[in-house]
Design a protein around this nucleic acid. Structure first.
Lengths: 193, 193
DNA sequence: AAAAAATGTTAATCTACATTAACATCATTT
DNA sequence: AAATGATGTTAATGTAGATTAACATTTTTT
């Protein structure tokens, strides 16, 4: 169990005492998923939130026509899972699936109250995480309304170059909300200009 | 100052003592805006969050081409303002403007810590409000990706019939992310089928 | 190394929606 | 009541991006 990446992440936001670190370690579990495994399925209530230590996950939605729409990716040092379902304990609209072998540190909903009670700083940390998710989500709505697919692709590529490298292109297309054929066209166009 | 609608709203989620109500009343202010007035401007840090007692506001974004994109409306018993900017105290991407004469109860960011300290239940209430905003925002992304303008219009109309009645149609179009001409066409199509 | 599966490309055709522009209706001001 | 401005409609034309289908390339499995 390699909890160090989580501690590094936390230390950027709040400072924990040795005692708090010990307690935190006792509250979380470590899980390894294989490529292709589901962390969460559409319709289930999300009981846990995962901090990714290694690997990569995608959160996506399958619509009425069976089409897959990727909402977000999570790589090292990111929170995977549907935060909305986790915090409200309502059925999730999304699936979370590993697109690489993935190791993560898991916070269970059942432990959260106890964890917050023992380490109140963590409540603040999670509040901030949710805040960031809200801001990012609203920015995404705005972009989808006011920008072309090409502009959105360039922003994605420049914001997350590491992610673009390691995932198949058709998933980038799904994230951008366009077909893989059209993304192919966009990339060609960018290469020649 | 009519604080009753806020108290009714709060009582649905948490129960306040008389002492807490008195304290809360001392912490908020009451503001009246005229139709057309701005509550928040793009680029400013949102210092306050408003509970709408009467009237209606729109939150919108003006893009690089000068086009307006409406993100949400707020009517009686809703929270107006950009929660993202408020909670993170970062410059807002959005404007909030009254589209009717509007009265609201204002929480100032500077008072929040004190309010939370005195009435911890309210921290939970606000956390839940943010959670709901996140869930709604993610649902919106999904809808915009996987549904046609007609489907989105029907959902909007059925979810918020009161809002549709009281705002001009071109604002509904902006909220849906389509042109007013196309919404006009959709409505005609629905009427004839 | 061959076969199979997954991923990526190209081009033709199609469609949901935007844009433009002209006009119609309704609300507000004088 | 006329005039002005705000809102809504219709129709013609344009375009971003979808869909289909065939093929190319890369990766994985055997």
């Amino acid at each position: 169990m390699n909890i160090q990446p989580l501690l590094n992440y936390i230390s950027k936001i709040v400072t924990l005492t040795d005692e708090e670190i010990t307690f935190l370690t006792s509250q979380v579990t470590y899980r390894k998923y294989l490529k292709g495994q589901y962390v969460l399925q559409q319709g289930d209530i999300n009981k846990s939130v995962c901090f990714v230590v290694s690997g990569c996950t995608k959160m996506f939605y399958v619509d009425a026509d069976g089409q897959e729409h990727i909402i977000m990716f999570a790589v090292e040092d990111w929170w995977s899972s549907d935060l909305g379902s986790f915090i409200s304990q309502t059925p999730s609209d999304f699936n979370v699936q590993c697109i690489e072998d993935t190791e993560c540190i898991v916070f269970s909903y059942n432990n959260m109250e106890e964890t917050y009670a023992h380490i109140p700083k963590l409540e603040r940390l999670f509040r901030k995480t949710i805040e960031k998710a809200l801001v990012a989500s609203q920015k995404r709505i705005v972009r989808n309304f006011s920008m072309s697919a090409k502009e959105r692709y360039i922003i994605f590529r420049d914001s997350y170059p590491e992610i673009e490298q390691r995932i198949p292109q058709y998933m980038v297309a799904s994230y951008l909300g366009i077909s893989k054929e059209f993304l192919s066209k966009i990339k060609k166009q960018i290469a020649f200009q």
